[in-house]
Design a protein around this nucleic acid. Sequence first.
DNA 1: TTTGAATTCATTCAAATCGACCATCCACTT
DNA 2: AAGTGGATGGTCGATTTGAATGAATTCAAA
Lengths: 305, 305
Amino acid sequence: MKKLISPKQVARAIGVSESTLKRWCDRGLISMTKTAGGHRRMEVDAVVRFLRDSGHEIVEPELLGLPAAVGQTGWTLNRACERISSALVDGEETVVRQVVFDLLLAGHTVTAIFDDVLAPVMHQIGEEWACGEADVYQERRACEICMRILHELRTTTEKTRQEAPIALGATLDNDIYTIPVTMGEVVLRNVGWQATCLGPNLPVDTLIKSIRETCPRLFWVSVSYIANETSFITAVNSLFETADAAGTALAIGGQALNQSLRKQIQYSTFCESLRDLELFARTLNPAPSHPTPPPPSEATSLDSH
Amino acid sequence: MKKLISPKQVARAIGVSESTLKRWCDRGLISMTKTAGGHRRMEVDAVVRFLRDSGHEIVEPELLGLPAAVGQTGWTLNRACERISSALVDGEETVVRQVVFDLLLAGHTVTAIFDDVLAPVMHQIGEEWACGEADVYQERRACEICMRILHELRTTTEKTRQEAPIALGATLDNDIYTIPVTMGEVVLRNVGWQATCLGPNLPVDTLIKSIRETCPRLFWVSVSYIANETSFITAVNSLFETADAAGTALAIGGQALNQSLRKQIQYSTFCESLRDLELFARTLNPAPSHPTPPPPSEATSLDSH
DNA sequence: TTTGAATTCATTCAAATCGACCATCCACTT
DNA sequence: AAGTGGATGGTCGATTTGAATGAATTCAAA
């Protein structure tokens, strides 16, 4: 639910005076709207974006509804991995959330956080489970926590514009790993797409139908598990044909894909990582890098130096 | 005949108070008419025109398209069912979220919303899919939307106190239906428990381990699908024995449970609905009925005659 | 037609916000 | 050392906002 907050709250949360905050708003550093009576109102997510872009510290995160104790430590990605890994195994959801938000506020993109922190950590937990070092319920609980945080990150993106291109995503039959495909959704939304994750474990037939009925600009498929290679190959290829005919680009990626499989399937692009997916999406839709360009009045734009 | 909407709806859609909205009306910023009794009524078009002219943010756009769904009790839940059902099939996530939050604001508990709206609607969608009226991807997308909203509802509960009793929940082997068990988590959290959903599709062995390591006050199991009745029965009974020994109550429920199965398994309580689960949890931990007792200063509590 | 619960009215009041202005501080230049 | 430009924090009166109040109105069901 998009909640608008007042300058006073924001000023206290960031730890600056109201005067300064008003000047930042007027310079376009924080995206903001005004009421009919001329009062400034801003979204929490806009403030978070400003904090991330400007590298400014947050003083009272709870005023913005963020987990407390955010933004006090500069996490390196490696340290974050260790901390998040142990917290995930122990089921300490609040710790995970806090570290992730710390990373966000420290200027890391969600793509980087996924590629360099969450994905390797979840992979490692999966291996610990396979080796018997971690129990099943710990691994599954870690997945649950991860999904909740993904959903939370999903809501912090700017609202997509109506004319934004549409993207659909899914995993194929027997592949029940929801996390990677959902990460794709969050990444695509973060670069301005109207991305929707259809869900895991979906037969090709229905995916083909969804493409025909929606005509998205991009369809991404995450492949974490393959039950039957032959049927997988025919599935992907029939999906590609439909997509190609509908003008839909097909992006595919996932740990279960090896070199020999890659040679037997058709796709528009192969993604080794979410970075690749993001890059490909940007290529398809070269959006403005700053979704909300600060509206400079002629005077200020000339006066600046 | 154009539909007229009330100031209350418009105020919430724009995100301002009723007082302010009425002042804007009286200033002529929004064209409106008055009823014979002097009540303001405005057309959706007029509101949209005002939003465009003033550059105002639309906080909850769906509300403008909604029938007056707030505040009543009887038919609201039915109307909500229809609206949510079609929105879920069509993948209109924002509409679903809006209606759910409308119901919350109208005073319905999450338990009631789950039992009387979301659960039957999802069940109906499942049947539509089985009958071939809806496609698989629509059903799966509806589940995804549902999960996101559940996670959102989960965060709206207050943070649980440290001394609150602990509850764990899961579904058993081969049962991949996450929604019901997550609903349990939200309900329990709403009545003050530290509830954690371990996830779906978990073997009994690991659940037993989780009970031994965590010693929760309550363990809830949702049963939406049973692959093998014999192994299911032995699984539940061994789970109950462990729980009983650890002082953990075992609550069980779900659509896949019939009378004959009930007779063969042991449990502390059987839940026909989330209401039952909530009630049982309250029995176990007779917490203050108001999780946030309004902090009454002595003066005000006496003055409020 | 009557009734009762919910909604809306007009009004008042405290708190928040606006824009404008001013003093201070700091880095940098003269 | 003195001057300059930029950023910050604070104050002021006027305006806007949100919440509360008791009376009036609406709407659906009896």
